[in-house]
Design a protein around this nucleic acid. Structure first.
Lengths: 212, 212
DNA sequence: GGATAATTTGACCGGTTGGTAAACATTACA
DNA sequence: TGTAATGTTTACCAACCGGTCAAATTATCC
């Protein structure tokens, strides 16, 4: 008798590990492109190279697949912000934060779009997680505020500083189609991330200097 | 006999004007929140306060409704960029561009989200329009490049400058839920747009100054 | 007021989709 | 090797959804 994964003991077989990975990979493809409603289990199954009931053997509902993806993404998504170090040099810290966020936009665009889709819909399934986010941002905002107070960077609102870095970096993942369309085929190579990094670093380093 | 709107003469009755407006208003609500696939005609009809067949009397397909909305949004969406004036003072021009974009994010968040949804899904239905966008941006990038050449602003990539302004301003519409969650209930009042404007104006004015 | 055109609705249809049941196949392990 | 647990598939269902149709109702205009 086949018992669904969640109901049985914690033990996971080799096949479970592998298949769940394949399914989540496929689901990330489909969810990030079509949104939750637009994604179909049939489509995910096709991308994963297995039958629909087989997919549903590992994840009992579409919601469960989505949930698993969101949890995984949220977990790694905030790593760059966590590394934000109060002891470091503000200029270096901000520059490397921008770098890391841009690298994530370049290397994990589907994850970014999955998240964007979720927020666009009003974040129906991640309200508690947003609370954790708030705490982390509060903490880092305090770091930035300390930099301002000690005159290491110019006076500015730390929250909107963080928002602006999120926005500018994730833009290259979420609005990729638009960015490519505007830059045209010749400029849409991998170089656009380098160009973006250069521009943003300059903008923030100069923009946050203490005014003479 | 009832003949669908599109098939008959250009004449439009008073009722047509009114009902189409009501439907598009409802459709904007639903599409911007749930995406194209997630939106149902039933839901739109409910919000519009009429029956589904009645909605389909004015717009023959769901696609037609979406199309009408996208066309309308695209038309007004780029107005702020069009006003970008080569003759003006760069600092003033950039500041007022940021202002206008922030005002749009504040006053038309649903339109922003509709657009974001479309781009996220790979812009399936606005490829030609993206070409017009490219031309407009090319034109304005030339303006910015001229400012750089004449030493009115610091050296920077005009395309990524524009991208960054789009990203930072639209963020307040598209990621509204996240912004509110992070700022907390006390700081989520209307003041957040003023704070954002202050921060961004400072960032760009200082960030784009010619380096000493 | 009556004819005609415009508008509205309830009933319905076919395709899609999330999910199930149960038979069948394979793997793990004694 | 046998057998129990695990994994896979075919067939299927009920709900949903985009869209149609014909009949009923309302607005327009002479």
């Amino acid at each position: 008798m086949a018992i669904p994964r969640a109901a049985k003991t914690q033990r996971r077989t080799r096949i479970q590990e592998e298949k769940e990975e394949i399914i989540l990979e496929a689901a990330l493809d489909v969810f990030s492109m079509h949104g939750f409603k637009g994604a179909t289990i049939d489509h995910i199954a096709e991308v994963a190279g297995m039958s629909k009931p087989n997919v549903l053997y590992y994840f009992r509902t579409k919601e469960a697949m989505h949930r698993a993806l969101i949890d995984r993404v949220l977990d790694t998504w905030l790593d760059p912000l966590r590394e934000f170090d109060a002891e470091g040099n503000p200029e270096i810290e901000i520059k490397s934060y921008i770098r890391r966020k841009l690298e994530m936009a370049r290397d994990f665009p589907r994850e970014s779009r999955l998240f964007a889709n979720e927020i666009l819909r009003g974040a129906p399934s991640i309200m508690e997680e947003l609370d954790d986010l708030r705490k982390l941002v509060d903490e880092k905002a305090e770091v930035i505020r300390a930099w301002v107070k000690t005159g290491k960077i110019g006076r500015c609102d730390p929250y909107h500083l963080i928002f602006s870095i999120w926005a500018t970096t994730q833009h290259y993942a979420d609005f990729d189609v638009q960015v490519r369309a505007v830059l045209g085929p010749t400029r849409s190579g991998d170089g656009r991330f380098e160009d973006a990094a250069r521009f943003l670093e300059q903008l923030y380093v100069n923009g946050l200097q203490v005014k003479a």
